[in-house]
Amino acid sequence: MEKLINDFSFGLFFWQITLFLLLLVLLKKFAWKPILSALDERENGIKDALTSAENAKKEMQNIQADNERILKEARTERDEMMKDARAIKETMLTEAKDEAKAEASKIIEAAQATIQSEKQKAITELKTQVAELSVGIAEKVVRKELANDKEQSALIEQLLKEVTIS
């Protein structure tokens, strides 16, 4: 201990403390502050880059999930639409068929009705013509026959018979 105290040099202590403090102040201003802030800045930069990369990844995943979802939705929608279309087609077909059937039967009915009426008309005309013809014949016959009274009344008799028969 005595040797320690004896060896203690005040001059060296003075220089050491002065020079060290000077070095500390100078280095603090010109070296440590810029170095430490540069290191901090760099670290923060790296941290930020990593976080943004992570965020981008998450966003990407979200987008992918969205895409997946949208695709799925689109598929179901398409399926539904197809189904609907098929049903519509089905109903349309049946409707059309029914309608066609109805129309056809209507047309047939109408045709039959027309035929019936035409037939009736034809029969009536025929009747009229037959009647006219018979009247004509009768006239001619009458004209000829009427010369003879006997014959005439016989004829009338006969005609009347015929008429009632027909």
């Binding site: 040099s9 005040f10 001059g11 060296l12 003075f14 220089w15 050491q16 020079l19 060290f20 000077l22 070095l23 100078l26 280095l27 010109f30 070296a31 440590w32 810029p34 170095i35 540069a38 290191l39």
Partner: peptide, 30 residues
């Protein structure tokens, strides 16, 4: 009272200078 620039004081000065060169150089490079 002895305030001499002794061998140790000289080495302290040299070390200080060396540190100054090394770390101010480093700060500049940053």
């Amino acid at each position: 009272l002895d305030f001499s620039i002794t061998k140790s004081v000289l080495m302290i000065l040299i070390t200080g200078l060396l540190m100054w060169l090394a770390f101010v150089g480093m700060a500049k490079s940053f």
